[in-house]
Amino acid sequence: MLNAETVGAAIRQVREKKGISQEVVSSFAGIGRTHLSAIERGQRKPTLETFFRLSEALGMAASDLMREIEKEIQKENDKQEEK
């Protein structure tokens, strides 16, 4: 299941792994820092256009960012199966 928290967690993890601040990513993506913060906290889902902008701002293809989200989904599914 694709939910806002999973999407946001994956985006945040990629950003932090790359050592890039929210201010830099949001600036490159052309969105507000508070908008990015809301996405990372799972309060908002990015539109497809914003998703592509974020992937570019993170220096990766959108498909690679989607793979990171898929990894988060798998982690969530594994947790559910353990219960």
Score class of each variant (00 low, 15 high):
55 S>K: 04
42 G>S: 06
29 A>V: 09
41 R>G: 04
60 M>W: 03
23 E>H: 02
28 F>E: 03
47 T>C: 12
70 E>R: 10
65 L>G: 13
82 E>Q: 12
13 Q>A: 12
3 N>K: 08
82 E>C: 01
55 S>I: 05
56 E>V: 04
43 Q>R: 05
41 R>V: 02
9 A>D: 03
3 N>R: 06
3 N>E: 10
21 S>C: 04
56 E>F: 05
49 E>H: 14
17 K>P: 00
6 T>I: 15
14 V>H: 01
9 A>V: 05
20 I>W: 11
53 R>G: 12
80 Q>W: 03
17 K>V: 00
19 G>E: 04
21 S>R: 06
54 L>C: 03
33 R>A: 12
59 G>K: 08
75 K>Y: 01
13 Q>R: 13
56 E>L: 12
65 L>S: 13
15 R>H: 10
75 K>H: 02
12 R>I: 08
54 L>I: 15
3 N>M: 00
77 N>Q: 15
1 M>V: 14
78 D>M: 12
59 G>W: 06
12 R>H: 12
24 V>A: 01
32 G>V: 01
58 L>D: 14
20 I>Y: 12
22 Q>S: 07
64 D>H: 09
28 F>I: 00
75 K>D: 02
31 I>A: 11
18 K>F: 04
11 I>M: 07
53 R>A: 14
73 I>D: 00
75 K>F: 01
63 S>C: 10
27 S>V: 00
19 G>W: 07
33 R>C: 02
14 V>A: 06
73 I>P: 00
63 S>M: 11
49 E>D: 15
77 N>C: 14
38 A>Q: 12
32 G>I: 02
26 S>A: 15
74 Q>G: 00
66 M>F: 13
67 R>P: 01
19 G>F: 07
49 E>L: 15
31 I>F: 11
62 A>C: 07
20 I>Q: 14
24 V>S: 00
69 I>N: 03
62 A>M: 07
80 Q>K: 15
62 A>E: 14
26 S>G: 09
33 R>E: 04
78 D>A: 15
80 Q>H: 06
23 E>G: 00
31 I>N: 10
54 L>F: 03
5 E>D: 10
29 A>Q: 09
26 S>I: 05
61 A>N: 09
58 L>Y: 11
10 A>W: 04
25 V>Q: 09
73 I>M: 13
73 I>E: 10
81 E>P: 00
55 S>H: 05
30 G>D: 03
77 N>R: 15
13 Q>M: 05
44 R>M: 11
40 E>R: 02
34 T>N: 15
75 K>Q: 04
66 M>S: 12
81 E>I: 11
43 Q>D: 03
5 E>A: 13
68 E>V: 10
57 A>T: 08
48 L>S: 09
53 R>Q: 13
81 E>N: 11
34 T>D: 10
54 L>A: 03
62 A>Y: 07
41 R>I: 02
82 E>M: 07
8 G>S: 10
34 T>E: 10
64 D>F: 02
53 R>L: 09
32 G>Q: 06
